[in-house]
Every structure is written in structure tokens, then in C-alpha cells.
């Protein structure tokens, strides 16, 4: 018997897993570096945060929930900053963005 808490946690974890798989498919499928970062920077952030929120719901009130909350907060702050850092490095070293109609690389 699944309780309601477990059902909510399972739905959140399933949503997070869907977004993580979508992010990896975008990483493999998009044509160039900048568009690949579009897929990973957004889908990974929300997917991992959803999984961690599911774990928090499953855990209930304890100190582990506090740690999971800090982990979620850190991912929300750090993931866009990391994406931005790689993108700025690539742009400043002169990697040309892909335009529509060009060959994929």
C-alpha cells in the first residue's frame, strides 16, 4: 500500500527523471555547443530539483530534509552560473554560434 506521501514523492521523482532524460537527449541531438547548453542548463536544473523535492516529501521532517533543502538551493544557484561560465569562455575564445541552415557540428 502506497500512502499519499509516497505517491506524491513518486510523481515528483518521475517528473524529474523525465526532464533529466530530456536534457541528455538534447545534449546528444542539438547541432552546436550553445544550443546544447540550452538543453542541459535548464532541463538538468529543474529535473534535479524535482527529484530532490520528491526526496524531501518522502523524508518528512528531519535534519536530512534541511540538508536536502540546502542541496536544492545550491543547485539553483550554481547550475546557471556554471553554464554561464562555460558559455562566456567559449564565446570569448571565438567559437562561432550555429546559424539556421548550416551543417551541424
Amino acid at each position: 500500500m502506497f500512502s499519499i506521501i509516497n505517491i506524491i514523492a513518486t510523481i515528483l521523482i518521475a517528473g524529474g527523471a523525465f526532464f533529466m532524460v530530456t536534457g541528455v537527449v538534447g545534449l546528444l541531438r542539438f547541432p552546436d555547443f550553445y544550443t546544447r547548453l540550452h538543453a542541459t542548463g535548464k532541463c538538468d536544473t529543474l529535473g534535479e530539483v524535482l527529484v530532490i523535492v520528491g526526496c524531501m516529501v518522502y523524508q518528512g521532517w528531519s535534519f536530512i530534509t534541511v540538508k536536502l533543502f540546502f542541496l536544492m538551493f545550491f543547485i539553483f544557484l550554481a547550475n546557471p552560473v556554471g553554464t554561464h561560465a562555460i558559455m562566456k569562455a567559449a564565446y570569448l575564445t571565438g567559437l562561432k554560434p550555429w546559424k539556421k541552415g548550416e551543417e551541424r557540428r
Partner: peptide
């Protein structure tokens, strides 16, 4: 952020 993820998922899939 939710809208952004559905947008990217639509473009990927």
C-alpha cells in the same frame, strides 16, 4: 522556469 523546461522539452523532442 516550468515554462522554460516545457519549451526546451518541446524543442528537443
Amino acid at each position: 522556469i516550468f515554462l522554460a523546461n516545457f519549451d526546451v522539452a518541446y524543442r528537443v523532442l
